[in-house]
Amino acid sequence: MAVEFEDGNGGHRVLFSKRAQMNGDTWHTDRIDVGGKGQALNSYTLTAVDVDRATDAMLTSTVVDMAFSTAETRDPGADIWRISYAGYPSGVKPVAQVSVTRAEDDDRSCNDTRAGNKKRQGQ
């Protein structure tokens, strides 16, 4: 699954969010993060993509080295959401899309929203 969005300069960016679960000819995924704090009313395109083996290997082996940051470096493929691209690599074929827009009255990040929902559910 990929998330397409406009960057601060009006350009187009793509980030690979997570692997969808396949069942025959259908796919499913939950909890794709879009935007963050300060992103109210921003629009995004969620795109199911088919990737070739070489691109899949590249995405699942990518490590984002956070050595110069306070954030931790995670396992290969775990931090792919930190990297965005100007377009799709040649080994990627978009197959389905849906556009979403962040709510006007909710400026929380996706992680804040998820944490609040878990707290209300007593988890």
Rank of each mutant, 00 (worst) to 15 (best):
K37D: 01
R82F: 10
A20L: 07
Q123R: 07
V92I: 11
T70H: 08
A20P: 03
A48V: 12
A40F: 06
Q21K: 10
L59Q: 07
K18Q: 09
S43I: 00
E104I: 15
D7W: 07
S84C: 14
M1I: 15
T60K: 05
K118T: 00
T45M: 04
N117P: 00
E6C: 12
S61G: 15
T55H: 12
G8N: 11
H12G: 00
N111A: 11
P76M: 15
S90C: 04
A86W: 09
T73V: 13
A71Q: 08
T62Q: 08
K93L: 13
H12T: 10
R120A: 15
N111M: 15
D79T: 13
G91Q: 03
T55V: 08
A2M: 02
T70V: 02
G35E: 02
S69Q: 11
A103D: 12
S99G: 12
V98N: 08
I32N: 01
K18E: 06
Y44K: 02
A67E: 04
V51S: 05
M66G: 04
T29W: 01
G122I: 14
G116K: 07
G10A: 15
R19C: 14
T47G: 00
M58T: 11
A115Q: 04
D105S: 09
M1Q: 14
N23K: 11
R108C: 04
W27I: 10
D33S: 14
D106P: 00
T62A: 15
P76Q: 15
G10I: 06
D107S: 11
S61H: 06
T113C: 04
Q97N: 14
A48K: 05
V34C: 15
Q123M: 08
R19S: 07
G10K: 01
S17L: 02
V49D: 00
S90V: 12
D112W: 09
G8K: 15
R53H: 12
D107F: 08
T70A: 10
V64K: 07
P89N: 06
D112Y: 05
F68D: 15
K18S: 01
S61V: 09
G36R: 05
T60S: 09
D7G: 03
G77N: 05
E72P: 11
D75H: 12
K118R: 10
Y44S: 10
A2S: 14
H12F: 04
S61Y: 00
T101G: 01
D65V: 07
D65H: 08
Q21E: 13
G8S: 15
T113W: 06
E104A: 14
A48W: 05
D56W: 15
A96C: 04
V49A: 03
T26Y: 02
K119G: 02
S99H: 01
N117V: 07
V100G: 07
Q39L: 02
G10F: 08
R13M: 12
G91S: 11
Q97Y: 06
L46S: 03
Q39A: 13
A78C: 10
